[in-house]
């Protein structure tokens, strides 16, 4: 009896040491490539004794496709954009964070708590956010850029020199803002008008390109083009004379979020990582690296002065509202798909 007890005690102690020596657990992230500095991941891994692995996708839709095709259950956290959080939620792919499970939930900037795609933040936390509108190359165009008419009803000198992002959601949302109609409208006349607007605007567009949106503006191949604020800032810092626009009709706000996936294999570690991302210092480090904006209280004071004052992150009061791209219902989405196909056929 005594021998067995000692043996089990030894075994237990040994196993405890073994566990402490090896990783206390794992964490599996599904993320964009180069969207988080490796040092942060390494620091988190060391501080918590957790082994972090990361798989990458190159678009929200690709992520959804792989999750649907069978990879759900192999990742703990993913980093979808705003409308994709709603879609994942509707698909039942998100896990709920119960009250109290997230220690740092109070750090979330109040304006980002009740976001339309996750009211009350039951499954997600802010990661980085920014805006999407358009920029112009000031060497080529000196006119007023405070309206989305630059893209949809351009002055003659810009015709044939406009690049659009190759993204259905963003193009259609900006068009809806331009027309002043609601997103996901079910009104037939409005939808027909939307279709007509895009058809007529297309003649002035030279290309649909997301990957080289920054390069075409910097080189002047495009005099005007849709672009994310972060990319525009990068282009400006590379020497391009480009100015980001804050149209009076409004512009698109986007936010990437960390979400807890359903059937997460390491749920507890996932929550730890979310808490990690909600520490002002950590998220500021990420923001200084990625050069967008954080959604966490207190992060601002740790940002570099340059980033805080960059014009692309500071919307003037004269600008219109920043709206998220909405995920529409099935019927409206079908019409949107038809409109997009009409545009690209």
């Amino acid at each position: 009896m005594k021998k067995t007890l000692t043996a089990s005690a030894v075994a237990l102690t040994l196993s405890m040491f073994a566990q402490a020596a090896s990783a206390e657990g794992k964490l599996s992230l599904y993320h964009w490539f180069e969207y988080i500095p490796q040092e942060m991941l390494d620091r988190f891994a060391e501080e918590n004794g957790i082994e972090v692995t990361m798989d990458t996708y190159d678009s929200n839709e690709a992520m959804l496709a792989t999750l649907k095709a069978g990879s759900l259950g192999t990742y703990d956290l993913s980093f979808p954009g705003d409308y994709m959080v709603k879609i994942l939620g509707d698909e039942g792919m998100l896990d709920t964070i119960n009250d109290g499970e997230l220690k740092n939930k109070a750090n979330i900037d109040p304006q980002w708590i009740d976001v339309p795609y996750d009211l009350g933040r039951n499954s997600s936390i802010p990661y980085q956010w920014g805006t999407t509108s358009f920029s112009v190359n000031r060497d080529l165009f000196k006119g007023d850029i405070s309206s989305t008419a630059i893209l949809f009803d351009p002055p003659a000198e810009l015709s044939g020199k406009i690049n659009m992002l190759d993204s259905q959601g963003e193009v259609l949302t900006l068009a809806a803002l331009h027309m002043g109609i609601p997103q996901c409208s079910t009104d037939r006349d409005q939808l027909k008008a939307l279709n007509a607007l895009l058809q007529s605007a297309k003649e002035h567009w030279v290309s649909f390109n997301s990957d080289t949106a920054k390069e075409v503006l910097v080189t002047g191949d495009a005099a005007a083009g849709m672009i994310y604020n972060g990319f525009s800032a990068k282009g400006r810092l590379e020497g391009g004379n480009i100015e980001y626009a804050f149209p009076k009709e409004g512009l698109i706000a986007w936010m990437d979020n960390a979400v807890l996936l359903k059937d997460a294999p390491n749920r507890e570690n996932a929550l730890k990582f979310m808490d990690f991302l909600l520490e002002p210092k950590n998220i500021a480090e990420l923001t200084n690296w990625a050069q967008y904006s954080a959604g966490v209280l207190g992060a601002d004071e740790f940002l570099t002065d340059e980033l805080r004052s960059t014009p692309e992150n500071n919307k003037p009061d004269s600008a219109g509202p920043s709206v998220f791209v909405e995920a529409c219902s099935e019927e409206v989405q079908a019409v949107y798909d038809n409109i997009w196909t009409n545009l690209k056929k």
Partner: peptide, 24 residues
């Protein structure tokens, strides 16, 4: 490759394509 790779495995194309999304 992008679809059938597992977590933590990158090949050069997936790494490059991914990097491009953050700005070339």
């Amino acid at each position: 490759t992008n679809f059938v790779k597992g977590a933590g495995i990158e090949t050069l194309p997936t790494a490059i394509f991914g990097a491009v999304k953050q700005g070339i």
